[in-house]
Simulated assay, not measured.
Amino acid sequence: MAGKPREPFLIGWREWAGLPELCDVPVKAKIDTGARTSAIHAWNINRFEKDGAPWVSFELHPVQKDNRTRIACTAPIHDVREVRSSDGATQTRIVIRTRLKLGGRSWPIELTLARRDQMGFRMLIGRTALKRRVLIDPAKSFLCGRADRN
């Protein structure tokens, strides 16, 4: 018998997000229900093959306005999709699956790799990652706690 689903919890319009399978540095993320897919700022994105399967290597730059902090990551490629960016342009993006940690809870999400140099946040968490898990108070920020406690 499956366990009872957890009640959704309250988050703000921006939160410190953890990506424990990729890095140990919290990322300031914008909660964006207008976006279907979540995205992370990634550089040096390179596809390769490992044991006959498609993988990707990339660098995360998790700290806003700091390009010196770089975290090398690798992950299996889950998908490659056309994604419409905030300026209306369509981009082909690599999609990986990883765990998102918010407010002491964590769950798997799909995350696209994209250059977000001009964006105000290094990470955007879209509605698919949030569905049935959270309630959002658009007047509040950082309801899940400070970066050092995520």
Rank of each mutant, 00 (worst) to 15 (best):
T37N: 09
W107D: 11
R47M: 13
L19Q: 07
P26N: 01
N44D: 12
A75Y: 00
E59G: 08
L19P: 02
W16H: 08
G52V: 04
T128E: 06
P62L: 06
L60A: 08
P20F: 06
I31K: 03
E59P: 04
R68Y: 06
A89N: 06
D32C: 08
R81A: 02
S106F: 02
I94D: 07
W55G: 14
P108H: 13
G52S: 03
Q64V: 11
I40H: 03
K50E: 05
L60G: 10
P20D: 15
V83H: 06
N46P: 00
A72L: 13
V134N: 03
R97M: 08
E15V: 11
A89V: 00
M119I: 02
M119C: 08
I125A: 00
R68I: 13
P54V: 09
A114I: 04
R132F: 02
A75M: 06
E49M: 06
G104W: 11
R93G: 06
I71L: 10
L100V: 14
A75H: 04
E82R: 14
C23F: 02
N67H: 07
T37V: 13
R81F: 00
F121L: 12
R127H: 05
R122Q: 09
N67P: 05
L10M: 14
A39Y: 12
I125V: 15
T128G: 00
F121V: 09
L60W: 05
V25R: 04
L10N: 03
D66W: 06
I125N: 03
E15G: 09
A114D: 11
G103D: 14
R70E: 02
R127T: 03
T112A: 15
P54G: 11
K131Y: 10
D117E: 15
V83D: 10
T69Y: 08
R84H: 01
D24E: 09
F9V: 00
R93Y: 03
N67L: 10
Q64W: 08
L130C: 07
G120M: 10
P20N: 13
T112K: 06
R84M: 09
R97C: 05
G52R: 09
T128D: 01
L124E: 02
K101P: 02
R68C: 09
W13R: 10
F48H: 15
I94F: 14
D51N: 13
C73I: 13
N46I: 03
T92W: 04
I77G: 08
T33H: 03
A89E: 13
D66N: 15
F9D: 01
V25Q: 07
D51W: 08
Q64D: 07
L19K: 05
A39E: 05
S86V: 00
R84G: 01
A29E: 00
A39D: 05
T112E: 13
R47K: 11
A35I: 02
K65N: 14
S86T: 02
R133M: 00
K50Q: 12
D32I: 11
R115M: 06
R14C: 10
R127K: 10
E15I: 12
R70H: 01
I77E: 08
I96D: 07
L100G: 12
T128M: 08
A89D: 07
A35N: 04
A72E: 10
